[in-house]
Amino acid sequence: MLVLTCPCCGATAEETELAPGGEAHIARVGPGADASAFEAYLFHRKNPRGVHFERWRHAHGCGKWFHAARNTVTLEVYGTYPAQTPEPPRELLEKIAAKVPGFDPEART
């Protein structure tokens, strides 16, 4: 079972209390975007084997959105941070780089 800590209220919750929101840190398109840009926004997502940055909502708690860094193979959670953060925190990227061979924190920023 996936267990995440909500950085907004501090509660630790199982995935049944959360709602997934897909990939984090993607560029959202506005109403003036052409059809191909809107298609890319809706359907073209990374689905990596390993480290992944995702959006989650604490649905049965505070109701706020947050981001989580986790490993899609082992389900290890490296950390969570508020959704208003434009990119993963440097400390979190360094923590992941120390644990995951071949992970390049510079490739994320």
Rank of each mutant, 00 (worst) to 15 (best):
E15V: 07
H67P: 05
A83K: 07
E15H: 02
P88W: 05
E15P: 04
A11Q: 15
L4M: 10
R55F: 15
M1G: 12
A59K: 15
I26E: 00
W56C: 01
K95F: 13
E39F: 13
F66S: 04
R90H: 14
G61L: 04
V100N: 07
E54N: 08
K95S: 13
F38T: 12
N47H: 13
R49K: 08
F43Y: 11
A11G: 05
F38N: 10
I26V: 13
G21K: 06
F38G: 03
E15Y: 13
V51S: 02
T85Y: 01
S36V: 15
N71V: 10
E39L: 12
P89E: 05
R70D: 03
A24K: 05
T109P: 00
A97E: 04
R45N: 06
N71R: 08
I26N: 02
A68C: 15
F53V: 01
F66R: 02
P89G: 03
H58K: 08
G30Y: 06
Y81I: 10
T16Y: 11
K95E: 10
E91P: 07
A37Q: 14
C8N: 15
W56P: 03
F43P: 00
G50K: 06
T12K: 09
E17N: 11
F43I: 00
D34T: 07
H60G: 08
E15A: 12
H67E: 00
T74Y: 08
P86H: 09
T74K: 07
A19C: 07
P105R: 03
A69H: 04
E76R: 13
G50T: 11
E54T: 11
L75V: 12
S36Q: 13
G10C: 07
A11Y: 12
L42R: 06
D34F: 02
M1C: 04
V100M: 11
A40Q: 06
P7C: 04
P101D: 10
R45E: 07
C6M: 02
A35G: 00
K46C: 00
A59D: 03
W56M: 11
G30V: 01
A59H: 15
F103H: 03
H58P: 03
I96G: 01
E14L: 00
W65F: 14
